[in-house]
Amino acid sequence: MASNEVVVDGEVVHCIGCGAAVQTIDKNMIGYTPESALKKGLENGEVYCQRCFRLRHYNEIAPVSLSDDDFLKLLTKIASTDSLIVYVVDIFDVNGSMIPGLHRFVGDNPVLLVGNKLDVLPASLKKNKVKDWLRQRANAAGIRPIDVELISAKTNFDIDRLLDQIEKYRKGKDVYVVGVTNVGKSTLINSIVRQSTGIKELITTSRFPGTTLDRIDIPLDDGKLLVDTPGIIQPEQMAHHLVGKELKLVTPQKTIKPKVYQLNPEQTLFFGGVARFDYNSGDKKHGFTVYAENNLYIHRTKLVNADAFYASHVGNLLTPPSEENKTNFPPLEMHEFKTTRKSDVVIEGLGWVTVPADVVVSGWAPKGVSVLIRPAMI
């Protein structure tokens, strides 16, 4: 136990927003809470660290001193438990949501795979198709889930069904909720708590990666625990390259409205300045359907001019990234595909473009962010 941790009645006090041990000494360390705020929080039974307070009330994010290794150490303890693992992924960023070597963290415990953010997918997308695709992606990553559920933690869609499935599969065991940062784990747990107790927004949530800093234990009716674990930092996520308001322009906030662009060969679409799509070659003009955040600026230009256009306009016309962030933004890398059937070119964390058969296309994304091709979902 660290000497600066606040102890009441022999128990270390934890922030109920992020799980960090509360301390009143060092403003730059996790868990810092001013004495006055601590006193007030103890009186009303809701102690929040200053970071969570600012995040909840002002949407400000403060840097923290917890490293990737600290996150991993917290998660490796799960393998020795006898529990149900609820593994949350972002339907819109499945590759970026996958935890490399998940089996090392969960051991022999059963895994219930949960696809979150269903609310942003177009209604024309069939749920069973999405479930099958999610299971295939999990299997390819070496994960064999006992079941797959689709939810929207934000809108509470199918939370009741998920609760029933958790109860069915946990068989009286503790439940650990795991996932990479920014997939909506804490939003999901808040929904579960709200459905069960009526308490709103117990756990700090935001669009910023890495909001939960330590495990948060929530008692279940039978004395077992629902545990929110810190999200594993996944550097390949698009969200890690964006700041503040930029995230809102890239992460879908509402149901996506598909946009169709009629492109000739050797034409390019820019998605702000964060990604790019090229129609390299094909026998004629084709319609390409874009599925991305409705407010993201999309600009069409000629392929021959694309590199120069990007260099001239990234950070102003092509935004995000902002002018301030463009020097920190990774260069875009090209991924070329030749299609043999109707397919989706997926730029992880941003969306996808549905393309026809027998064309050559390229998807560009920040270095490290995945671009992949799959059979068309719609």
Rank of each mutant, 00 (worst) to 15 (best):
N4Y: 08
V7I: 13
G10Y: 03
H14L: 15
I30R: 13
P34S: 05
A37M: 09
A37W: 01
N44D: 15
P63D: 02
P63Y: 01
V64K: 07
S65K: 08
D69Q: 00
K73M: 01
L75G: 00
T76A: 02
A79H: 11
I85Y: 08
V88R: 01
V94D: 11
S97D: 05
V111I: 15
D119F: 01
K126N: 06
K127E: 12
V130E: 06
K131F: 05
D132T: 13
L134T: 10
R135D: 02
A138T: 06
I151R: 02
A153P: 08
K154V: 14
N156R: 14
D160R: 10
R161M: 15
L163Q: 14
Y169D: 04
K173M: 00
D174N: 09
V178N: 00
G179R: 07
V180D: 02
I189C: 01
S191A: 15
I192S: 10
T197L: 12
T205S: 15
F208T: 05
D222M: 05
K224Y: 07
G231Y: 01
I232P: 06
M238D: 06
I256S: 05
K257F: 02
Y261M: 11
E266Y: 06
Q267L: 02
F270C: 03
A275D: 02
R276Y: 06
D283N: 09
G287C: 11
T289Y: 08
A292P: 07
N294E: 05
F309Q: 06
A311N: 12
V314Q: 06
G315R: 03
E323L: 06
T327M: 08
N328G: 08
G349Q: 03
P356R: 04
D358H: 13
G363L: 01
R374D: 11
P375M: 07
I378A: 13
